[in-house]
Design a protein around this nucleic acid. Structure first.
Lengths: 227, 227
DNA sequence: TAACAATTTGCACGGACTGCAAGTTTGAGT
DNA sequence: ACTCAAACTTGCAGTCCGTGCAAATTGTTA
């Protein structure tokens, strides 16, 4: 019992089988969702494919959508850790920019055989229920990240800036994904980058001044015109 | 058929009863949701209270949550119109700032007897399912607003800036609401305003030096480290 | 191996939602 | 007023999601 119980303590057959079952369910769920459409897959089919009872399915996931999304809680932990360990010189938004970029990299790699991420993104966009779940799961992550960021900034957790920065960051990714869905050929990274830059420099500055409501020093005519 | 079929053409008994039924369902749904909790109200109870069959309930709303949220599609139309008619000097974000502010005013007024909006906000925060639906409905609005804003800016609809500005604006409101939920005493308007200002000036600028994305140098230096 | 704990599974329900085929009601024409 | 058709409402049957419970399995340990 010297293990931390975290990464690979003393697996034991039991633990191993659980992981296997979970993986099997996620795999089956994704495959079937892609084949028949997210809303037309039944829990029964998924369970069948993973060779477990329907009841067992629900011992693993609270909602059908969770299995399809198959998110690994470790991803979030990693992101939070990265926020904590990020170079001290980085601004809050800078931190999020780096962390989210790394997260995207991770996803690209974990990519087992096929582009399971790409598939999931496609699915998410197609199914309202999935999108909803996706957002929900994301909300929890945002909370954790915001707390970590607030800590890092030395301000009370429930402050506007950290929450806003985190939310805006995930927003950058979301908007970028939507752009691609809308037919943009530009690589996802480029779109994400553009969004981050706009957020960093100020959404008003990207548009020529012409006044708006910048209290501080709105004086600054810059380019960035691209819309 | 001289009427526009919009506001009050030639109501007719039929149309009138439909509106009444709809209103009754929404009212019953909200009341019961507040009383017993959003997830513990059954469609049967709601229908019962509005004195219609369960089947009829589903002729009016696709999901139980829709009745509880009881959103008026006219709200969105009004917002879109306001975006189109907003003073030409306003920056994109400035437009959204004004429009959302007006929308909040509207909600405060429509406030029939009690604070139905406040109640709904409370409910939304309590129920995952409701929050999900809320986000979903909001997504559609965002699409419409983004299109209107893009038009106004004279850029192709699927551009990053308009989408980002719209999404960021609703984000400002969302974050403000969450802040209040987290115990902040500051008035909602003040929180919304702070968020908008941060977005307008740039999320990086709000944080003082310590480097990041230097204001004068929009060119991000590193990041992408392990892209 | 015996006793114990974690899992799996079947079963029975409750509740959301849908398609279908009657009833009812309303708006119009004649 | 009388008739018709479109618009609505309703009941019914049926599918699927998700949950509590208790019995049956299986892994873990002394």
């Amino acid at each position: 019992m010297i293990e931390t119980e975290d990464s690979a303590p003393a697996p034991g057959r039991r633990e191993r089988k659980k992981r296997e079952t979970r993986a099997a369910l996620i795999a089956a769920a994704l495959r079937l969702a892609v084949e028949k459409g997210p809303d037309d897959v039944t829990v029964e089919e998924i369970s069948e494919a993973a060779d477990v009872s329907v009841r067992t399915f629900f011992n693993y996931f609270p909602k059908k959508e969770h299995a399809i999304l198959g998110r690994d809680p470790e991803e979030t932990e990693r992101a939070v850790r990265r926020v904590r360990e990020a170079p001290a010189e980085l601004s809050p938004l800078g931190v999020m920019r780096v962390v989210l970029s790394q997260a995207l990299d991770d996803l690209d790699n974990v990519d087992d055989h096929e582009s399971s991420i790409a598939q999931r993104i496609g699915l998410i966009m197609r199914s309202p229920a999935l999108l909803a779940q996706f957002v929900m799961l994301g909300a929890e992550d945002e909370r954790l990240l915001a707390t970590a960021l607030a800590e890092r900034m030395g301000v009370p957790a429930p402050a506007v800036l950290p929450s806003l920065v985190v939310a805006a960051s995930t927003l950058a990714v979301r908007v970028a994904m939507e752009q691609r869905k809308s037919g943009s050929d530009r690589p996802l990274r480029e779109l994400v980058d553009e969004a981050f830059t706009l957020l960093a420099d100020g959404l008003d500055r990207s548009y020529d001044r012409t006044g708006s409501s910048a209290p501080g020093t709105p004086e600054d005519s810059d380019e960035k015109g691209q819309a």
